[in-house]
Design a protein around this nucleic acid. Structure first.
Length: 930
DNA sequence: GAGTTCACG
DNA sequence: GACGTACGTGAACTCA
């Protein structure tokens, strides 16, 4: 039947169905393999109900419309459009294609157009149907669709079973459907990030539109508005309002590759529908549908669920003999087809160095199933390393590197093929240097971190041994160790095949094991929102690096060397003999045995302790300890910073490229290595000068933004301390306020000393305070310190409750959690002896430190979109600080954009009861910017 | 390679 | 009543 008068078209908003189904149901998984299917199940039930409800009705045509692609013309108009959306939950993502298949199984037309939102397709079809003289019902409650209502188009809220006609729209917006867009343009939409006119909501917008007729007239005559604030907003923000109207206006001319006639209602085919339902293992639903169709219900076997953490018994052993060597393009093409057929592939790159900036690609290994792996040698060298002429020759029997990459790139960049790796940041950086940007990716190291933080480290060797019962070939057997170690390009190809293909094989097995565990252990959100999306962000920061001025460091090194030499002489004179100033053992003997100073304490190894705290106490008695302290400071600055940093300047880029270890700290913090740029001195004036060597190139500026007191704010929130929360809301000096509360000193009579003590207590609480620890930190008697703590608990009783609850939770579950669901395991929490104390304090600290770490991770993940188009790069993270390199003219814009992201980073997942405040600075170098 | 010390948040 | 203690990191150095 050709669509025309008397026809009735139903358009179902597919995405709304999916999200409603996802949130309405618990995270169900398919019994046989753990595939998440909760949303698919709910979706099918909703479709079934729809079919039942409309059986025998007047509907002649129907389609389910989906969104496709995240980038639409609206993003080109306004990059921030829908930018504050949470990433799709990981356990929902694999269900999206299944909902398409479900729709088709029900024999309902299933339509999507790349680069268009479902709403635009719905708009286009509605107008076509209306113009053809038919009726339309849009099954959705999305207010953005209300502009389409009228002239035979209505909406139906399927959940409430309520029809929405022009009257209903007027009830909601205060204007008719034809003016809905104008009202939305003024009111904006915080969910979709449509800016609108600040301070004007739906009510005011409707009032204005009704008074002036339409938006254009209103904007033209904005000068006539009486309220000064409103008038000013409408005049100043006219462009922003017009842009907002473009964003909310649905596109009724979406190019479609089908016609209304293709949407005719069809009866489902029982075999197809029941086949799909039994594949999903929906027992109840398939019985019900089979009964309705009057056919036999399918028999769905009861598959035994796989025990968590247990390798599937039918996997072949990890065996070098089964691993293929790829030496011609035909064989590579076969593998590429295999990868496409599987839709995912484990990948590992072999290179000449652990330094990704300098490493040369030597080979690539792939695996598609346990035991089915290959290695593609690309850059192995032949001949003796000592042979100057032969050493650079490529070994025979290898594919040309560029040919292999050209063949692989379409797969590696295919958004429909998942690339699985162990520490993918490394492989992404290597391939990025060859112009290949892998996406999407999964990372078994990060999966393990989300699942097992606090239990063990997450290197492949540890994971393989622990979860596969297999010890991988040690890299040492190929490369040797120490001075005689060779690089991977010198490894004979056949040895490399065994080693490299095994790594891909292991990675694939770990992925098969961990992936379903993420759902079972309820850490998919952590993995999906805090781990996986951070990988490309860190990779980019590391590749950018930061410019370091070698001259500045070199001059400082010389100055330090001179001062140290002078101090050394002085020290030897004071000691009465020469000795190695850098040897704590020799120093201890001199101080406590030879010079007879009292208070020497021996550690477990029998050596005297000579740490800074000990020497500071001794400094009142004698000059020597003070000189040692001076010498040590200089020695530290020189060896760790001014000397070592110079060696880390990359000869190609002239910049220093750190590596962030995403799984480095149990709490969720990052660690920085080679070099560590998270501990560049700042606390002393002399050390701080090292930061002047971290510079921005000409025409650019370094911009630093850091969270103010983020851990204390989080403590105030999680322990629910009203006094602290209020103090933060009022923008008070939190340490002074604590001091005032504890010691009864009015704020205007506060002394630095009292404030200092309160500050120490505030930090102590975050660290799992003990009387002993506070006493040592403040150098006061233990009883006095305990008195402070008692008073603190009395004044802020929530703290005690938080600590007790956290310990109890840890004992019950074996882990603690951050506000964002990150788990930190606490295996020692019930240990006996001193270890229990450590575990308790770590358990108290972890949710606070970890939540702060989660917050800045969220900010970093959102940052690229927020600063897109601005001439700047994010370079470094130092736990609560982000450092950017910005073109001089854009400093204020970047600060505004980045601050917005950072201050809003907890939302929408967590609503903190305290504001997050970000301080900003900028300058030619890091010392000035901080 | 373990132990000590010290740089950072 | 006695344990021993602030939380989280990485790097350089000494010494066995």
């Amino acid at each position: 039947m050709s669509f025309g008068k008397g026809c009735h078209l139903h358009l179902i908003d597919g995405s709304a169905f999916i999200f409603r189904a996802y949130h309405a149901l618990p995270p169900l998984t398919r019994k046989s393999d753990g595939l998440p299917i909760g949303a698919v199940s709910g979706f099918c039930n909703m479709l079934q109900r729809y079919v039942d409800d409309n059986a025998g009705g007047d509907v002649t045509h129907v389609a389910v419309i989906f969104d496709k692609g995240s980038h639409t013309f609206r993003n080109d108009l306004y990059p921030e459009y829908k930018a504050n959306r949470e990433a799709m939950p990981e356990d929902l993502r694999p269900q999206i294609p299944l909902t398409r298949r479900a729709t088709e199984a029900f024999n309902i037309a299933c339509k999507e157009i790349e680069g268009y939102e479902a709403d635009d397709i719905i708009a286009t079809l509605s107008m076509q149907a209306r113009d053809a003289g038919g009726r339309v019902t849009i099954i959705s409650s999305d207010k953005d669709l209300m502009q389409l209502v009228g002239g035979g188009v209505e909406m139906l809220d399927a959940m409430k079973n309520r029809r929405i006609d022009a009257e209903g729209v007027e009830e909601k917006f205060g204007v008719g459907p034809d003016r809905v867009v104008d009202v939305q343009a003024l009111a904006g939409d915080s969910v979709d990030n449509v800016p609108g006119a600040p301070g004007i909501g739906v009510k005011t917008a409707a009032l204005l539109i009704n008074e002036y007729g339409d938006l254009d007239t209103l904007l033209e005559r904005a000068g006539e508005i009486k309220q000064p604030k409103r008038r000013q907003t409408l005049i100043e923000k006219a462009d922003q309002i017009r842009l907002s109207r473009q964003l909310v206006q649905l596109d009724c001319a979406t190019p479609l590759d089908f016609t209304l006639d293709d949407l005719e209602v069809r009866d489902p085919d029982p075999d197809t529908l029941l086949g799909f339902l039994s594949e999903m293992e929906f027992r109840t639903l398939s019985k019900r549908i089979a009964a309705a169709m009057e056919v036999e219900p399918p028999v769905i076997p009861d598959a035994a669920p796989q025990a968590p953490g247990e390798a599937a018994p039918d996997w072949p052993a990890i065996d070098a003999a089964s691993h293929e060597k790829i030496t011609d393009m035909a064989a590579l093409a076969v593998w590429i087809d295999l990868v496409k057929a599987h839709g995912h592939v484990a990948i590992d790159t072999e290179t000449t160095s652990l330094n990704e900036m300098q490493a040369e690609l030597v080979g690539i290994s792939l695996a598609v199933e346990p035991g089915h792996a290959c290695y593609i040698p690309l850059g192995h060298r032949s001949g003796d390393a000592d042979d100057l002429f032969g050493s650079d020759r490529l070994a025979g029997g290898q594919l040309p590197l560029q040919d292999a990459l050209d063949a692989l790139a379409p797969v590696l960049e295919d958004p429909a093929i998942l690339k699985i790796g162990q520490n993918m940041k490394y492989d992404m950086k290597i391939l990025a240097r060859h112009g290949v940007s892998m996406s999407p990716i999964d990372d078994t190291m990060l999966m393990s971190y989300a699942l097992h933080a606090g239990l063990h480290n997450h290197g492949m060797d540890a994971l393989s041994e622990r979860y596969l019962g297999h010890t991988p070939i040690p890299i040492k057997t190929l490369l040797g160790s120490g001075k005689s170690a060779i690089t991977f390009d010198r490894v004979p190809v056949d040895d490399a095949v065994a080693y490299a293909a095994e790594d891909a094989d292991i990675t694939l097995r770990l992925w098969r094991l961990f992936k379903p565990q993420l759902h079972r252990e309820k850490v998919t959100a952590v993995y999906e929102t805090l781990e996986r999306p951070l990988v490309p962000v860190l990779a980019r920061m590391e590749r950018h690096g930061i410019e370091v001025d070698r001259e500045v460091l070199s001059r400082m090194s010389s100055a330090f060397a001179q001062k140290m030499a002078a101090l050394e002489e002085e020290i030897h004179a004071l000691a009465g003999r020469k000795f190695n100033v850098g040897s704590p053992k020799q120093l201890g003997e001199i101080l406590f045995d030879e010079m007879g100073l009292v208070g020497g304490k021996r550690g477990k190894t029998g050596a005297y302790a000579t740490g800074a705290d000990v020497l500071e106490d001794l400094a009142t008695e004698h000059d020597l300890p003070a000189r040692i302290l001076d010498w040590r400071q200089l020695s530290k600055l020189k060896s760790t910073y001014t000397d070592a940093l110079q060696d880390h300047i990359d000869p190609e880029t002239g910049r220093v490229h750190t590596s962030y270890v995403q799984t480095g700290a149990n709490t969720g913090r990052l660690a920085s290595t080679d070099p560590n740029l998270q501990n560049i001195p700042v606390r002393t004036e002399e050390g701080r000068r090292i930061r002047t060597a971290f510079v921005a190139p000409k025409g650019r500026t370094l911009v630093s933004l850091d969270y103010s007191q983020i851990e204390l704010r989080i403590l105030a929130h999680v322990a629910d301390i009203d006094a602290l929360k209020q103090a933060f809301r009022d923008g008070l000096d939190i340490h002074a306020m604590t001091a005032s509360e504890m010691f009864g000193v009015p704020l205007d009579q506060m002394t630095p000393e009292i404030r200092r003590q309160a500050k120490a207590i505030n930090f102590g609480v975050i660290y799992g305070i003990s009387g002993f620890g506070l006493a040592r930190n403040l150098r006061i008697p233990r009883a006095e310190a305990q008195g402070f703590i008692d008073r603190y608990f009395e004044r802020f009783p929530g703290i005690r409750a938080y600590m007790d609850d956290t310990i109890a939770f840890a004992k019950e579950h074996g882990h603690v959690k951050t506000l964002f669901g990150r788990r930190i395991h606490t295996p020692e929490i019930s240990a006996k002896g001193p270890r229990a104390g450590f575990a308790r304090r770590a358990a108290i600290n972890a949710p606070i430190q970890g939540t702060a770490a989660d917050v800045i991770r969220r900010a970093m993940i959102r940052m690229p979109a927020a600063i897109e188009g601005l001439p700047c790069k994010m370079l470094l993270q130092v736990h609560d600080e982000l450092l950017f390199e910005v073109e001089d003219g854009a400093v204020e814009d970047v600060i505004a954009a980045a601050r917005d992201v950072m201050q809003g980073a907890a939302a929408p997942a967590v609503r903190l009861g305290v504001p997050l405040i970000v301080d900003a600075g900028h300058g030619a170098n890091w010392a000035e910017a901080h």
